[in-house]
Nucleic acid binder design. Structure first.
Lengths: 126, 126
DNA sequence: TGCTTATATCGACAACTGTCAATCAATGGG
DNA sequence: CCCATTGATTGACAGTTGTCGATATAAGCA
């Protein structure tokens, strides 16, 4: 079998390296981008930082609406995005909804950036 | 002056913790989000992974256009976004443009996610 | 039961983003 | 000097996103 990869034909200058690189495939890239998209918003980053700093690692919506200077529906929308990305966990207790970080989710995202390849998907969602 | 923060008045149920949390401020969040926005696209993640895996840690545009199945102007556009986010470095040698990772940039982004606070801005851009 | 408070959902809209076709600029070869 | 090639820029356009006001849902209280 032809194990040696055909680097180039020789009839072109060819600045390019051969194909077959160990690159992220489309599915991995898309999964990784979905989490990063959820993180790529200043207000959502602030929401996460408040939740992380909150008592017991959790915070309710009323904790989150005021410091961000955003309307309540907007905050609720951002929280939903973070939950769907597998970064936040939602728990309703009585009248209030408490949000907390999904353990390992931020670490996984961080690792994915470092290696630029999907490692262990922690918050594997839908 | 009134140094003691007014936690609550006592006439409300108050699910909320006092304000003054160690949260990300608006400027930090925006700076962090700018880098993450650049990372939050499947094709840009793949570009970075190709550059990282490339010979000498660099790759030219013709290396990047084909495996992504995107038009050349689109790839050029994505590369510009990555450069402006401080993630890629561009060097023109002769007819070809070579792109390489900015050292430490991915590590900084990774750390920022872990701590959810800006640590040491490495690729401090414009 | 009816009121109040907390949170989610809906509909609308402006702003931004990813993509392409066409074109421009720069480099190197005949 | 003209041409071929590499890559950037421009303009257009569809799709997505962030935000708000209005409304719905749900829980607790009088």
């Amino acid at each position: 079998m032809n194990t040696a990869p055909v680097v180039e034909d020789g009839n072109k200058p060819s600045c390019c390296t051969p194909s077959g690189l160990p690159m992220l495939n489309a599915a991995e890239a898309q999964a990784m981008a979905r989490v990063l998209k959820a993180l790529a918003d200043p207000n959502r980053l602030r929401l996460l930082s408040i939740v992380k700093a909150g008592d017991g690692g959790e915070a309710c919506v009323c904790d989150l609406t005021e410091p961000l200077d955003l309307g309540q529906p907007t905050v609720s929308h951002h929280l939903k995005i973070l939950v769907e990305a597998g970064l936040l966990h939602r728990e309703k207790r009585g009248t209030w909804a408490y949000y907390s970080l999904v353990p390992g989710a931020l670490e996984a995202a961080s690792q994915n950036i470092l290696g630029l390849q999907v490692s262990t998907p922690v918050g594997s969602g839908s």
